[in-house]
Structure formats: structure tokens, C-alpha cells
Simulated scan of single mutants.
Amino acid sequence: MIILNENTKCLVQGITGKQGQFHTEQMIKYNTNIVAGVTPGKGGQEVCGVPVFDSIEEAKENVDVNASIIFVPAPFAKDAAFESIDHLDLVIIITEHIPIHDTMEIMAYAKAKGVTVIGPNTPGVISPKVGKLGIMPIHIFSEGDVGVISRSGTLTYEIASQLTRAGIGQSTCVGIGGDPVIGTPYIEVLEMFENDPDTKEIVLIGEIGGGAEEAAAEYIKDNISKPVVAYIAGISAPPGKRMGHAGAIIAGNSGTAKSKMEALTAAGVKVAQKPSEIVDYIKEARGE
């Protein structure tokens, strides 16, 4: 497993809000190690038995914590992210609609501090053996050795569900986020999965817009020895029209599903035409 493991001790920023409370409860039910919450002005309260503090600095004085998951509304997300980057090793930003300039500043700061950021606009990370830091429905995931990387939360759920139903479990599923600027791109997650003894095969789920999948294809060609299966959403998307995610927009001839599929195929990746084919390709890679 990668990113989320037995040593991850997480706090929830925005824990007293409706989303923060609901997902904290769900994460705890899945045995995730949630040790604290942070909402300025709400220190001293408890949510789902988790102590709430006014700041991350105060939380760190009272509990052992090394990660944060952010449910703070978009206008305040940058401040929340900067605070967590100052004090922690891993920051997962669930929030969507964060202004792109804010996101650029967050990522530059995280890079300078050597902190891993997942997101924003992500469903989070789930390692079925140890827990989840995110909003994904837990019943569709199962413990196993397929690593999943995706820009799309919904497609992650769809494909994980099909894998689980076929008896194929997952080591870790990572939603890298659907915005144009994100913290951890495909390449970095691919490298983690390549070095992860718990992961035997990798599923890459992409969509139209940007050049991330083409860059991933180049990286896979030279650096990944494990079988990779891919699916790209948006084959019939019209140019110039944003499809769902802020980053899912085709400009000119780049960023199309066709260009991404061709690049991945050229890198030796099996590219599924529809999500249901992924199970077949994983079984094929296993010689089943």
C-alpha cells in the first residue's frame, strides 16, 4: 500500500461542518486512525469521540499526528492548506472550486516544504487494509494487490466495484484530483506503486484535457515494470467544452481521449475501450 498506511495519524480540518462530521464518522467506521479535528473557535468540542482543537499547532501539542484531510470551504482552503503544510507530512484536499491561483500557491509551498499533497477536488485515498482518507463509499473496495490511480472519483468507484465483484482486490486507490493544478500527478503515484511490494498491477483512469496521461505514458515506457491497464473517459467529448472537472477540457488537438489512448498504447499499456474490459485485462496480465 502507498500514501495511507499503518503509521498515518490524521486530523480533520473543518471537522465540525456537515461534511466534516459525516465523513469523519465514515472514516472511523473503516478503522482509519483519526486522532483530532481542527476548527478555529470550536476547540474543546468533540466529534465522533475525536477531540477538536482551534489550530493544528494546538492539536500537535496534544496528540501524535502527521496527516490532514481538508473539508474547509473553497474561500478558506488555502489558509487551511498552508497551516497543514507547515506542520504535517501529508495533506489531502477534498475541497473543490478552489481558485486556481490559490492552488498554485498551495503546491509551490508544499513543494518547498517537501510535503505530499493529494488533490484538490479529490475523493481521497483508500488502502482497504488500513483505512480511508476521503469520501469514497467503502463497500465497493476490497483488500488486494491492484493499485488504482484516477482523476475521476466516480470512475474510481465504478472500476473498483467491478474489480471487487470479480474477486480482484486493491492495494491502494488514489484520486489525484480533477483540477488543472494538483499536488501529486500520475507519475509520482506510478513511481510509488512500482516500488510498492503490495501492488502487482496498476490501473490508470484518465479523462480528456491536459497532458498528464501522455506524460504518464512516457514515464511508464521507461520506468514501470508492472502491468498497467488504462481507461480514458471522454472519447466523444467535443473540443473546447469543459466536461465535469475543471481540468477536463480539450484545447486544439491536444488533450483528446484519442491522443491519450494512442500514447498509452505506444507505451505498452493495455487501454480498455470501456470500464468493464479492465477486469479482463488484469486477469490476462495474471495469466488467468
Rank of each mutant, 00 (worst) to 15 (best):
M1Y: 02
I2A: 14
I2S: 14
L4F: 03
L4C: 06
N7C: 00
C10N: 09
L11D: 04
Q13F: 10
Q13D: 11
I15D: 09
I15F: 08
G17E: 07
K18C: 10
Q21G: 10
Q21K: 12
H23V: 13
E25V: 14
N33G: 05
N33L: 11
N33M: 10
I34E: 12
I34Q: 09
V35Q: 06
A36E: 07
G37D: 06
G37N: 09
T39Q: 06
G41T: 04
G41V: 03
G49Y: 11
P51Q: 12
V52H: 08
D54R: 11
E57L: 09
E58Q: 14
E61D: 12
N62G: 01
S68I: 05
I70Q: 05
F71K: 12
F76R: 04
A77S: 12
K78M: 15
K78Q: 15
D79W: 07
F82Q: 10
D89A: 13
L90A: 10
V91W: 00
V91R: 10
V91T: 15
I92M: 07
I92C: 06
I94W: 11
I94F: 04
H97C: 02
H97M: 12
P99I: 11
H101I: 15
Y109L: 14
A110T: 08
V115I: 13
V115E: 09
T116R: 13
G119M: 08
T122K: 11
P123E: 15
P123G: 15
V125S: 04
I126E: 04
S127D: 09
S127P: 00
K129T: 15
K129I: 15
G131R: 00
K132Q: 13
L133N: 12
G134N: 12
I135V: 15
S142D: 14
V146M: 01
I149V: 07
I149R: 02
Y157H: 14
E158Y: 00
I159D: 06
A160N: 13
S161Q: 13
L163S: 08
Q170P: 00
S171C: 07
V174W: 02
G175N: 04
P180T: 03
V181M: 06
G183D: 11
T184V: 08
T184A: 12
P185T: 01
I187L: 13
E188D: 15
V189T: 12
L190F: 02
E191I: 04
E191Y: 06
F193D: 09
F193S: 07
N195A: 14
D196S: 08
I202Y: 04
V203D: 03
L204P: 01
I208H: 10
G210P: 05
G210S: 10
A212P: 05
E214C: 07
E214D: 11
Y219C: 09
N223I: 07
P227R: 04
V229G: 00
V229N: 00
I232A: 08
G234V: 03
A237E: 08
K241R: 15
A246V: 01
A248I: 04
I249E: 13
I249L: 06
I250A: 11
T256G: 05
T256F: 01
K258T: 13
E262H: 08
L264K: 06
T265V: 00
G268L: 09
V271P: 02
A272R: 01
A272D: 05
A272K: 03
S276K: 11
E277P: 00
I278F: 02
V279M: 04
D280L: 01
D280M: 03
I282H: 02
I282E: 00
G287I: 03
